[in-house]
Write a protein that binds this DNA or RNA. Structure first.
Lengths: 147, 147
DNA sequence: ATAATAAATCTCGAATTCGAGATAATTTAA
DNA sequence: TTAAATTATCTCGAATTCGAGATTTATTAT
């Protein structure tokens, strides 16, 4: 257990994982950039689009971003008029981010294209292989998270 | 082919991959931070440690960083006296980055620990599963790179 | 009811990365 | 052999993210 060889395998997996993710990320960023958004903006907008209005802090929890970064991204999306801030009447500490009709319209246009792009980018594996990898990645991810 | 369901599987894989990588990356960054380095600095130092002196531009090619970013990281490592710049006598445009004895000493100390940490972090899978995932990730990565 | 604690958002400055363009050296072509 | 194109490195400013701490509001404990 934990021989040099096992360490080599883990190191190799780390390297291969990093490289693969770098290639994939690059493609996905190219796709998103076509829509005039960066990945973080897209993630926020997608969240509001699919899950409805969210307290600003919840956004940070879901897409794993510091509160100060969320403020920055929400500011940018608000300037682009893709979302608006709405104060919460029940708790005045809370501000909701709410996608606008322009935002919804944009997402209706680009989300299908984005799905298509991801389908393309992940074309290196067939469906069954993807399902297997999903399970293995979950195991890996949960384990690393618990450490 | 390319049904909604297949797109769902790809999207799911993307989400799970992103999450897993985020957890893993966080752990690895914690590990590297313990040594007083950030991931990029570590990558540069590891390259020089294992492959010897490198022209500054080659470093950028290998760890996929823009030339301006390399200048920044090499500056930092030079200030920490972990590497030195050495002009190339054959081609005066070229500057080599060369790990110092302090840098070598540091890497001799921390590299085994780093291997151990990665072994830990990737403990969610056994060796055979890792080998399989390496093959699948290569397929995914090459495919995405070629697009 | 008051004080202490917690929670949500924001401000600010630092760190990191990038892209565009500057500079200097080398190679290629006319 | 000049001129043009290429190559290596660096400078500079913009974009993005973070962490620490400030502010405001809500909750909990005394």
């Amino acid at each position: 257990m934990n021989s040099t060889h096992e360490q080599d395998v883990s190191l190799k997996l780390f390297v291969v994982l990093s490289r693969a993710v770098q290639s994939i990320t690059k493609r996905i960023e190219e796709d998103i950039k076509r829509y005039g958004l960066n990945p973080t903006e897209f993630a926020v907008l997608e969240l509001l689009f699919s899950k409805g209005d969210q307290p600003i802090q919840k956004i940070g929890d879901k897409i794993l971003l510091a509160s100060s970064s969320i403020t920055y991204v929400v500011d940018k999306l608000e300037k682009k008029q893709l979302l608006v801030r709405k104060p919460c009447s029940k708790d005045r500490r809370v501000t909701y981010a709410s996608i606008t009709s322009e935002g919804t319209e944009l997402m209706n246009t680009i989300f299908p294209k984005h799905r298509e792009a991801i389908q393309q980018i992940f074309g290196g594996l067939d469906s069954a292989e993807k399902e297997t990898m999903i399970e293995q990645l979950k195991k890996l991810g949960y384990y690393a998270q618990e450490l």
